[in-house]
């Protein structure tokens, strides 16, 4: 899965970029790969992958993100370690880029050291989000994101969902719309995200892409005790 050395996950907040980046990093770590997760989210102040630092470290994922009090700041901090990781030919790196084309500017600032030939640069699409409700919106989002990133996209991840109210129909409809956007952009849909209930209904060979079974990791505090609590100021992780 995503065999290139660098995996960059971009997309509007709410599309599922953080969940997918966490999923990819944890899956790699689970197969014994030494992987670093870069939290390049400079846009949204809450619900960032850095808040899961302890959990990720425990699972063998290195986390590159501001620490201490700066971890909670809404400041456009790009740490020197980000460039180091991208320039290290032996490092397997997953980048969680936050927000929208404006948030993607953080990625653009390190684009000079991104090994484009060894990089999967993937845009996550959720057609149930206000800013990407139509195929036209998604094309605009893709082009604007690419421009801000200063490197081309290599594929799309279809992740249309409504959190706990997602149905298989919503997932499949979103996948078909992502395919339409992909054909307009000349990009493949490389994966489709699905929850536990929808996963068995999807066949990778029919779809022609990976199916990522996404168990929601990041939950609001009122859902904590049902799952194994991880104490961060904002996060519950199961």
């Amino acid at each position: 899965m995503f065999t290139n050395r660098v995996t960059i996950v971009v997309g509007h907040f709410g599309s599922g970029t953080t969940e997918i980046a966490l999923h990819v990093a944890l899956r790699l770590a689970g197969t014994g790969v030494t992987v670093a997760l870069v939290d390049l989210d400079v846009v949204k102040p809450y619900f960032r992958s850095r808040s899961a630092r302890d959990f990720l470290t425990e699972k063998g994922v290195g986390v590159i993100a501001p620490e201490g009090e700066l971890a909670h700041a809404d400041l456009p901090i790009v740490m020197p370690a980000v460039r180091r990781a991208l320039q290290d030919p032996a490092a397997r790196v997953v980048l969680d880029v936050g927000g929208d084309p404006i948030g993607t500017r953080a990625l653009g600032s390190v684009s000079d050291v991104i090994p484009v030939a060894e990089t999967d640069h993937l845009l996550v699409l959720n057609f149930r989000r206000p800013y990407t409700e139509t195929e036209d919106d998604a094309v605009v989002m893709a082009r604007a994101t690419e421009a801000a990133a200063r490197i081309p996209l290599t594929g799309l991840i279809s992740n249309t969902h409504l959190l706990g109210e997602t149905t298989p129909e919503i997932v499949v409809e979103g996948y078909e719309r992502a395919r339409e956007v992909g054909s307009r952009l000349g990009l493949p849909v490389v994966a489709v995200g699905a929850d536990e209930a929808t996963r068995p209904l999807l066949d990778e060979s029919t779809l022609g892409c990976l199916v990522l079974e996404l168990t929601r990791l990041i939950r609001p505090p009122f859902e904590q005790s049902r799952f194994r609590p991880r104490v961060g100021p904002l996060f519950a992780l199961n």
């Binding site: 907040f13 709410g14 959720n126 149930r128 989000r129 206000p130 409700e133 969902h161 409504l162 959190l163 109210e165």
Partner: peptide
């Protein structure tokens, strides 16, 4: 209107 996944802030604006 179909359900959307919205951030609280966005839902407040749309409301």
């Amino acid at each position: 209107m179909a359900k959307k996944l919205m951030k609280g802030c966005e839902a407040i604006g749309e409301a």
